[in-house]
Amino acid sequence: MTTLQITPIGAALGAIIEGVNLAEPLSEGHFAALKDALLQYQVLFFREQPLTPLQQRNFARHFGDLHIHPIYPNVPDTPEVLILDTHDQNLPDNDNWHTDVTFIETPPLGAILAAKQLPPTGGDTLWASGTAAYEALSAPLQNLLDGLTATHDFGKSFPETRFAVSEEVYAQWHASRARHPPITHPVIRTHPQTGKKALFVNDGFTTRINELSARESQALLDFLFAHIARPEFTLRWRWQENDVAFWDNRITQHYAVADYLPHRRIMHRATILGDKPY
């Protein structure tokens, strides 16, 4: 077994990993090393990993059960791998700060994203550390947030109006909406393995802080959404074809920059189910 080479690339999060072929079954040593690296660096990047959907699924399965997205299309023979194919006829919808699939009771532990087709320029992704953002808050604000909960709503990122294009598409959306009513999570989440606290509200799915009035909730959410996007908590990844990113979805947010239209960008994602936030 070769030893992994780990190169940190950001002060708050991020590392490039070399010395492993993700297309092959992981050895126990590589599995343990990647788990440890994910906990330490929060998002890991791998260059020159031309994974098939089946290989991507098998790699993701080392870390847990996989989620099948209720809206995004998936690879026909590998439904655990969804397709993000964006261009001027299918506009991007991930160009906001979000944590994936927080509209379910057990939001994902992590996600593995593979770059399949890239525009000539642009199409970068940014990640932000929820732990760094939390630790930068004043103690009084930390204490306030620790006792609050927030509503996460499927419909915020997947609004009804966007899917009223045909009866078939609308029926899929309506069924998905019925299966995913609004759900409550803590505003501050404790990582189940490290014990560190992290900000766990995101502009993609969080609609209000439950214990506050509507005006108070909106004002505080606006502050928190802007706070986590501060440059010192973030990194920006410039994709190359066959890059793979693996992030800890429990304590990070990300933003897919939509600056490449009318060119096309195709990404494949496998999403690993997690546990109930506390």
Rank of each mutant, 00 (worst) to 15 (best):
P182N: 07
T106V: 04
G123V: 08
G130S: 05
P186T: 00
A198Q: 11
P192S: 06
G123M: 05
E135L: 15
R208G: 04
K196Y: 09
Q193L: 14
N202C: 10
T125K: 03
G195V: 07
A171S: 13
H174A: 15
D203M: 06
Q142M: 00
L126Q: 07
D88E: 13
L113E: 10
E160W: 07
D146L: 13
E160D: 12
L126W: 12
D153N: 14
N96V: 06
H152F: 12
V101Q: 04
W97L: 01
L91E: 02
T102Y: 00
P140G: 05
H180Q: 10
G155D: 08
H185A: 02
L212W: 12
D88K: 04
T194N: 09
P108T: 03
Q172M: 11
L137R: 07
F163I: 09
E167K: 14
F163Q: 06
T149S: 13
F154I: 14
T106Y: 07
A150M: 11
G195W: 12
Q172A: 08
T121Q: 15
G147Q: 15
H174Q: 15
D153A: 14
N96G: 03
L109I: 07
P186K: 02
T190Y: 01
I104S: 01
K156M: 01
D146N: 15
I183S: 01
Q142H: 05
H152P: 10
T102W: 00
Q142R: 09
D203Y: 01
I183W: 10
W97H: 02
I104N: 03
A115G: 12
E160V: 10
G155Q: 12
H152W: 03
E160Q: 10
P120L: 10
Q89P: 08
T190G: 00
P107Q: 03
D124V: 09
L137H: 04
L199A: 05
L91H: 06
S176T: 11
G110Q: 02
A164D: 12
A111I: 01
D93E: 04
P92M: 03
R208H: 13
Y134K: 13
N210A: 13
T125E: 05
Q193G: 08
A198I: 01
Q89W: 14
D203P: 01
P186D: 01
F163L: 04
A150N: 11
T121F: 15
D100V: 05
P92E: 09
I104F: 03
T206N: 02
A150L: 14
G155C: 12
D93G: 02
P120T: 09
S129K: 09
H174L: 11
T99Q: 01
K156G: 00
A128H: 06
R162F: 06
A136Y: 14
L199M: 13
V101G: 01
A111D: 08
P107A: 02
N94W: 03
S157E: 03
D153P: 14
P181Q: 11
A139M: 07
L113K: 09
S176H: 12
G123Y: 09
G155L: 13
P107W: 04
